[in-house]
Simulated scan of single mutants.
Amino acid sequence: MIQNSPAGILPAQSIDALLETGAVTSATAFDADQVQPASLDLRLGARVWRVRASFLPGRGRTVAERMAAVAMHELDLTRGAVLERGCVYIAELQERLKLPAGVSARANPKSSTGRVDVFVRLLTDNGIAFDDVVEGYEGPAFIEIAPQTFSVLVRTGTRLNQLRLKRGEPAKLSIRSVGVDLSNGVAGFRARRHAGVIDLDHVDGHDPRDYWEALKPYHGQLLLDPGEFYILASKEPIEIPVMEAAEMTPIDPSVGEFRVHYAGFFDPGFGTEEARGQGSKAVLEVRSHETPFLLEDGQTVARLVYEPLTERPSLLYGDRGSHYQRQGLKLSKHFKPWI
């Protein structure tokens, strides 16, 4: 089925087929909800290392070989471990890859990971770029974890990133600009510094006021302070057709010195009437760089790139439940509703 499919993003049933044929394996059984409409959640393994610097393995070198020179100490994730903000870690993942010819992959943080300002990137042996997995790759997978604002508690099985598998080089179907909504009474949230630890497996387990400050716009504008982290929402509802998937990409730096959206994957069915999600907005994770930046209502801050699926997915976004279908301005699932 996969060999004869056209170029495109692989949907849930094709990912299931890859698991069955051993293209993705794990020492433990896969979770029932690990396969998403157009991606596969990846799970932390048993060990994580605090490292003194980020790195790429480069051609001809493994992650383990490079890490030997930068590792500071090892933490046991089977007992749970707190990863401190401002530090960099490398963790092993439970999943191992043996991709067939013609199939490559790209990783991205899960939505809930990006919304708590945890920067994560996938590493593979011989890799010359973060998050990209070359066609036919066989070997282990690791994840770089760099909490930026909050220290976080993780453990074996915690899911921080996801893998989107593709056949060939899918065509870019369309590119859509995404503006920011600064028209409401509460336009966004700014992260509080020196807040407590966030347990990344505890849903609805944290009081948002301990971690966030609600922001009100002034005349449709919001001043971004350098180094601060913000949660904002898109001006327009977002819709991902059921035969497409999308990735949110940063705008050209010449338009504004800030980064938007660490977590860039949007699955088929997001925001659609068919998947009962009409009216959903994109949540934007925003960090200003170097200088203060005055953001205006409706200003373009990112772009959505749409790509085709190889076939209609057996699963749409929200079919297995979602914290973010039909969302407006919304914090991550770890927080109780803002009242």
Rank of each mutant, 00 (worst) to 15 (best):
residue 1 M to D: 10
residue 9 I to R: 00
residue 12 A to M: 04
residue 14 S to E: 15
residue 15 I to V: 14
residue 18 L to A: 03
residue 23 A to K: 06
residue 31 D to V: 11
residue 32 A to Y: 07
residue 35 V to I: 14
residue 36 Q to I: 02
residue 37 P to T: 08
residue 38 A to N: 00
residue 40 L to Y: 07
residue 42 L to D: 02
residue 43 R to S: 07
residue 45 G to W: 15
residue 47 R to A: 09
residue 50 R to H: 14
residue 53 A to S: 12
residue 53 A to D: 10
residue 56 L to S: 03
residue 59 R to E: 14
residue 61 R to H: 09
residue 61 R to V: 14
residue 62 T to Y: 09
residue 63 V to N: 04
residue 64 A to D: 13
residue 66 R to W: 08
residue 67 M to C: 03
residue 68 A to T: 14
residue 71 A to G: 03
residue 75 L to P: 01
residue 77 L to E: 05
residue 79 R to F: 09
residue 79 R to G: 03
residue 81 A to C: 09
residue 87 C to R: 13
residue 88 V to S: 05
residue 89 Y to T: 07
residue 90 I to N: 03
residue 91 A to H: 06
residue 100 P to L: 11
residue 100 P to T: 10
residue 103 V to W: 06
residue 103 V to M: 02
residue 105 A to D: 01
residue 106 R to T: 10
residue 106 R to H: 05
residue 107 A to L: 01
residue 108 N to R: 07
residue 110 K to V: 00
residue 112 S to K: 10
residue 114 G to V: 00
residue 116 V to N: 01
residue 117 D to L: 13
residue 118 V to E: 02
residue 120 V to A: 02
residue 121 R to L: 04
residue 124 T to D: 06
residue 126 N to P: 00
residue 126 N to Y: 13
residue 131 D to I: 13
residue 134 V to I: 12
residue 135 E to L: 06
residue 135 E to H: 02
residue 140 P to M: 05
residue 141 A to I: 15
residue 142 F to G: 02
residue 143 I to T: 08
residue 146 A to D: 03
residue 151 S to Q: 08
residue 162 Q to G: 06
residue 169 E to L: 10
residue 172 K to A: 05
residue 173 L to M: 12
residue 177 S to Y: 09
residue 179 G to T: 05
residue 184 N to T: 13
residue 185 G to H: 12
residue 185 G to V: 04
residue 185 G to F: 01
residue 186 V to S: 01
residue 189 F to D: 00
residue 192 R to Q: 10
residue 194 H to Q: 07
residue 196 G to E: 11
residue 202 H to W: 12
residue 204 D to I: 13
residue 212 W to Q: 04
residue 212 W to M: 07
residue 216 K to N: 07
residue 221 Q to F: 08
residue 227 G to R: 12
residue 228 E to I: 01
residue 233 A to W: 01
residue 238 I to W: 06
residue 242 V to P: 02
residue 244 E to M: 12
residue 247 E to M: 12
residue 253 P to E: 08
residue 254 S to E: 10
residue 258 F to W: 09
residue 258 F to P: 02
residue 258 F to I: 07
residue 260 V to Q: 06
residue 263 A to Y: 00
residue 266 F to S: 00
residue 268 P to H: 09
residue 270 F to V: 03
residue 273 E to N: 00
residue 274 E to A: 15
residue 276 R to V: 08
residue 276 R to C: 03
residue 277 G to R: 05
residue 278 Q to N: 02
residue 279 G to M: 11
residue 280 S to H: 00
residue 281 K to R: 15
residue 284 L to H: 03
residue 290 E to R: 08
residue 290 E to N: 05
residue 294 L to W: 08
residue 294 L to P: 02
residue 296 E to A: 12
residue 300 T to Q: 14
residue 301 V to L: 05
residue 305 V to M: 04
residue 308 P to R: 12
residue 308 P to G: 10
residue 313 P to C: 10
residue 315 L to C: 07
residue 321 G to L: 14
residue 325 Q to L: 15
residue 329 L to K: 01
residue 337 P to W: 03
residue 338 W to A: 02
